[in-house]
């Protein structure tokens, strides 16, 4: 039976700021013009959005990396990541220290304090804690972790936790703080971070960030039309550029799941989902 293209695809998105609804309104209008209507349902946190996906209130979820793992965990690994931004690929988290601190490697942080972001932030907490572990430091024993739980439930989408962690480093209360490479670049450029005073001590292995998640049995024709419309967005087209700048990408890419290994290890070793997981 041919797909009913008039029936909107229901897409979920988490809102960390009401302004985020503006970009989704623009994306919805773009899909409308592509004759692939979508209906966007907003969620206040990723837990509820994954609930919505698992219960099939949603067909497509714009998931954080942690929400992706959660969806996989709750569906027996049957979900698929069908698309992501170019900027979701190969991200890194930096551990930042004062240049004058004398700290030359993560091992030098032993006995010190490290500022991390929200407890559910892959980039600002889970992955950097795993990096410390991989560097031979037990985050529970060898270093003191000072966490900045800003807007827990948003998986670090809100950069407040990372920024508070850095401010804590700036005040000299900790020896290092963790932040996503994109935030290091942005804050170094806009003067939030004085790069003459602070430097990157070490970086994590690369990892991937958000993706559009669907159930394994998402109808092929609906998936094809969704992706066809999505991939029609072109940074070379001035009509699309503003929308893509707002969403922070230059191109949509096929989804891949090879970039979630570090986060997967992190949630396991940190028992993020609890003992029953």
């Amino acid at each position: 039976m041919p797909e009913d293209r008039d029936k909107p695809i229901v897409v979920g998105a988490v809102i960390y700021d009401p302004k985020v609804t503006i970009i989704w309104g623009i994306i919805r209008d773009f899909f409308e013009r592509q004759r692939r209507p979508i209906e966007v349902v907003f969620y206040s946190n990723y837990g509820l959005q994954v609930d919505g996906l698992v219960k099939r209130h949603l067909e497509v979820a714009w998931n954080s990396p942690l929400a992706w793992l959660d969806a996989q965990r709750r569906t027996g690994g049957s979900c698929r990541a069908v698309a992501m931004r170019d900027t979701d690929r190969d991200r890194r988290t930096h551990l930042v220290v004062r240049r004058s601190s004398g700290i030359r490697s993560p091992a030098d942080l032993k006995g010190g304090t490290v500022a991390l972001g929200a407890k559910d932030s892959p980039q600002a907490t889970l992955i950097p804690a795993e990096m410390l572990r991989a560097s031979g430091l037990d985050p529970a024993r060898d270093v003191t972790v000072r966490r900045f739980d800003v807007l827990v439930g948003l998986h670090g989408d809100h950069v407040g936790g990372e920024l508070d962690a850095f401010k804590c480093l700036e005040r000299g209360e900790v020896q290092a703080s963790a932040m996503l490479d994109l935030n290091w670049d942005r804050w170094s450029n806009d003067g939030t971070i004085n790069a003459a005073e602070f430097q990157v001590l070490a970086s994590t292995e690369s990892f991937d960030h958000c993706n559009f998640t669907v159930h394994g049995d998402f109808p092929a024709e609906r998936e094809r039309s969704f992706l066809q419309a999505l991939f029609a967005m072109s940074y070379g087209d001035p009509r699309h550029r503003e929308m893509m700048d707002m969403e922070g990408l230059k191109a949509w890419m096929p989804g891949r799941t090879t970039g979630y290994a570090w986060l997967s290890r992190a949630v396991e070793s940190q028992r993020f989902w609890g003992p029953q997981a």
């Binding site: 809102i15 009401p18 609804t21 907003f42 969620y43 206040s44 509820l48 959005q49 919505g52």
Partner: peptide
Amino acid sequence: DALAHLGVVGA
């Protein structure tokens, strides 16, 4: 709660 105005699930 501005998110309640937007009909955000969970607001």
